[in-house]
Amino acid sequence: MTPPRPRAFDPTTEQGVLRLSIAASLAMAAAAVVFGFLANSSLIIFDGIYGLIDVVMTWLSLLVVRLISMSTNVDTLQSRLNQRFTMGFWHLEPIVLGVSGTLMIGAALYAAVNAVDALMSGGREIALGPAILFAVLSIIAEIGLAVFIRRVNRSIGSEFIALDGKNWVVSASMSAAYLVAFIGGWLLGGTHWAWLVPYIDPAILLVVCLFVMVAPLGTVRQALSDILLITPVDLQAHVDAVARDIVARHGFLEYRSYVAKVGRGEQIELFFVVRADDPPRALLEWDRLRDEIGEALGEESTDRWLTIMFTTDREWAI
């Protein structure tokens, strides 16, 4: 009996949630472009462009997730792809996260320049009816998706899903800003403040762009740290504590540790310098010691690359 095929939009898996987000983002982006042209609103059109960028980057995130999953699956270790990428695909995760955040910042910067130009040119007349309708529908959909994604990610714990959840929060905040601005413009119409209405769309767009440029900075900074293989302080301290304990209990001379975090993957290399006159041990005994060190470092995971070496030559440990 063949096992049932996994559901494409399974909310209990990382790939299923990302697929769901891609479909929702595509629908929202298409609606934003349509309503943006109907309302003649650069603010709403930017929302559509922002959504399309999010669709592309979420799709790339899904691809990387699938590659990482394949590389850690024993049944596929001999595949041609794995033979070409013997060190795995963890390095792709921070690259995609970094590019995604950078694209968001770049799009917001370009839209901000256009907003400033519109403000200096007398503003932009918009149709407030379609604009208000779009803002209401967007808020309902985006808040619902943000809450759903954050809830399911409590059990999944994915950086990709976490970033996607942040993007939905940003989108909901943008829609709320639209709604306030458009309702304000509707209320000002027919009053002696009506001259301000054309400036509402570019002014709120500028504020939104500034917010969008700040939101991904943390993700970009962390992605850059992973790409540059900057050692996490907490992980290094934990590895050093375990290594010092092993050196003290087994009478080794010293150790060297090399630690990096690449996306969800942890790369740990430990070299122990053993006395040259240390009594010979069977290979099985050395393997048991490796298992002991691995357990002390933490629960075994397919996302941990662990190398443990014993030598009497310090040059091998440098």
Score class of each variant (00 low, 15 high):
residue 37 F to Q: 10
residue 47 D to P: 07
residue 27 A to S: 10
residue 14 E to C: 06
residue 44 I to D: 00
residue 29 A to K: 01
residue 22 I to E: 03
residue 31 A to P: 01
residue 36 G to S: 10
residue 47 D to C: 13
residue 38 L to M: 14
residue 13 T to D: 06
residue 17 V to K: 01
residue 35 F to Q: 01
residue 14 E to I: 04
residue 5 R to C: 06
residue 3 P to G: 06
residue 10 D to F: 09
residue 48 G to H: 03
residue 42 S to D: 11
residue 24 A to V: 14
residue 31 A to K: 02
residue 24 A to I: 12
residue 12 T to D: 11
residue 48 G to I: 02
residue 21 S to C: 14
residue 8 A to S: 11
residue 18 L to Y: 03
residue 30 A to G: 08
residue 41 S to L: 09
residue 23 A to Y: 04
residue 18 L to G: 04
residue 41 S to Q: 08
residue 50 Y to V: 11
residue 7 R to H: 11
residue 24 A to L: 12
residue 32 A to G: 12
residue 50 Y to Q: 14
residue 10 D to T: 07
residue 10 D to N: 13
residue 5 R to K: 13
residue 24 A to P: 00
residue 14 E to W: 01
residue 43 L to E: 02
residue 21 S to I: 00
residue 17 V to Q: 04
residue 25 S to W: 01
residue 20 L to M: 10
residue 40 N to Y: 12
residue 32 A to T: 04
residue 37 F to W: 13
residue 5 R to W: 06
residue 17 V to A: 07
residue 19 R to N: 15
residue 47 D to G: 14
residue 32 A to D: 03
residue 33 V to R: 00
residue 48 G to P: 03
residue 7 R to W: 06
residue 15 Q to G: 04
residue 45 I to N: 04
residue 45 I to S: 04
residue 41 S to G: 10
residue 33 V to L: 15
residue 35 F to K: 01
residue 20 L to A: 13
residue 51 G to W: 01
residue 45 I to A: 06
residue 43 L to Q: 11
residue 46 F to K: 03
residue 10 D to W: 07
residue 48 G to D: 05
residue 24 A to Q: 02
residue 37 F to E: 10
residue 43 L to C: 13
residue 43 L to A: 15
residue 39 A to L: 09
residue 24 A to M: 10
residue 8 A to Q: 08
residue 43 L to V: 09
residue 20 L to K: 06
residue 28 M to G: 09
residue 16 G to I: 08
residue 24 A to S: 14
residue 6 P to R: 12
residue 45 I to F: 07
residue 41 S to F: 08
residue 11 P to Y: 08
residue 9 F to S: 07
residue 23 A to P: 01
residue 40 N to R: 14
residue 9 F to Q: 05
residue 21 S to Q: 10
residue 18 L to M: 15
residue 23 A to W: 07
residue 4 P to R: 15
residue 48 G to K: 02
residue 28 M to L: 13
residue 27 A to I: 12
residue 34 V to E: 05
residue 49 I to H: 04
residue 40 N to H: 15
residue 39 A to W: 02
residue 27 A to F: 08
residue 26 L to D: 03
residue 36 G to I: 03
residue 31 A to Y: 02
residue 17 V to S: 03
residue 15 Q to R: 09
residue 6 P to Q: 09
residue 43 L to D: 02
residue 5 R to S: 13
residue 28 M to P: 00
residue 8 A to K: 09
residue 8 A to Y: 12
residue 3 P to F: 10
residue 39 A to S: 15
residue 39 A to H: 03
residue 4 P to I: 13
residue 7 R to L: 14
residue 8 A to F: 14
residue 44 I to S: 01
residue 23 A to D: 03
residue 37 F to A: 12
residue 35 F to R: 00
residue 30 A to P: 00
